[in-house]
């Protein structure tokens, strides 16, 4: 099977964030970027399926120069080649603009399956995969925790999460877009051999024009959402913070829990 994996590079979850001077996004200088968690699981799922069924995995990512590092890592893990939606015009889009660009890049080649994460750790639109499916006219499943391609490769059996721990099993006709949840598998580590091989694999940079899209159809220009401001939520509303020596703090907390909250 030929499988496309869409990945996003996001700031490390431990990153200390600062709001940019214009208050329109966070300051991305000095942040460490990593492959978005659930996208990493999507890549692992794709590699496993490709190993079982034959075929290849092609990874796609949209963003600036730094994104090539994530793509190179995916190549080291076993993807055959990568497509980098590299033009600055692609950036700053909402899920519709980003999904349109990715769908066009995917459509330029023939795929049986598209895998991506269910949500990103930064903007968290949680809908880029569903949008890609919409543009391709394919069925999709979100929050997927189990994926089994049926013999004949015409359909996939998917376990997707519903609310309160309930899961739903659905059967999707292929080609389809599957948005996986973190935890669906155990992602592998890159081998030294893989890292060496990745250096010779292709990362194709594409522009909107290469995909038959006008600059106004992608990125910030096409976004239907306009960011007015980003800000930190009110911090510690009513929370009493203990600081200093851990032993003192622990004793103070125990006293509070006993006398004030009366839970001990």
């Amino acid at each position: 099977m030929k499988i496309a994996v869409c990945m996003k590079q996001v700031p490390d979850t431990e990153a200390s964030l600062r709001v940019r001077k214009d208050s329109l996004w966070i300051d991305e200088e000095e942040l460490t970027f990593v492959i978005n968690e659930s996208d990493g699981y999507a890549l692992e799922e794709a590699l496993t399926i490709a190993e079982k069924t034959g075929g290849e995995v092609v990874v796609f990512s949209l963003g600036g120069e730094r994104v090539r590092e994530a793509l190179r890592k995916a190549l080291a893990l076993g993807a055959a080649r990568a497509v980098h939606l590299a033009d600055p015009a692609f950036e700053g889009g909402d899920a519709l603009a980003t999904g349109r660009a990715l769908a066009a890049a995917i459509q330029a080649q023939q795929f049986d399956l598209v895998l991506t994460g269910s949500q990103s750790g930064d903007a968290g639109f949680s809908s880029t995969g569903s949008v890609i499916a919409g543009f391709l006219g394919w069925p999709h499943a979100w929050l997927v925790m189990g994926l089994e391609v049926e013999d004949g490769k015409k359909a996939a059996k998917v376990t997707r999460e519903m609310e309160s721990g309930v899961n739903e099993i659905v059967r999707l006709a292929l080609p389809a877009v599957i948005e996986v949840q973190a935890g669906i598998n155990s992602p592998r580590y890159a081998s030294l051999k893989g890292i060496m091989q990745a250096k010779r694999k292709e990362i194709a940079a594409v522009t909107p024009a290469d995909l038959g899209l006008g600059a106004e159809e992608v990125g910030a220009a096409a976004s239907l959402l306009e960011t007015l401001a980003v800000f930190f939520p009110e911090s510690g509303k009513g929370a009493e913070i203990f600081e200093g020596d851990p032993a003192d703090c622990a004793r103070q907390l125990v006293e509070k829990l006993r006398k004030e909250a009366r839970v001990l």
């Binding site: 009493e240 851990p246 622990a250």
Partner: peptide, 19 residues
Amino acid sequence: FNFAHYGMVADLFDVCEEL
């Protein structure tokens, strides 16, 4: 911390032991 009633900005292992 926006939802907590009491908070400690600290290493959780230190806090666990001391608690």
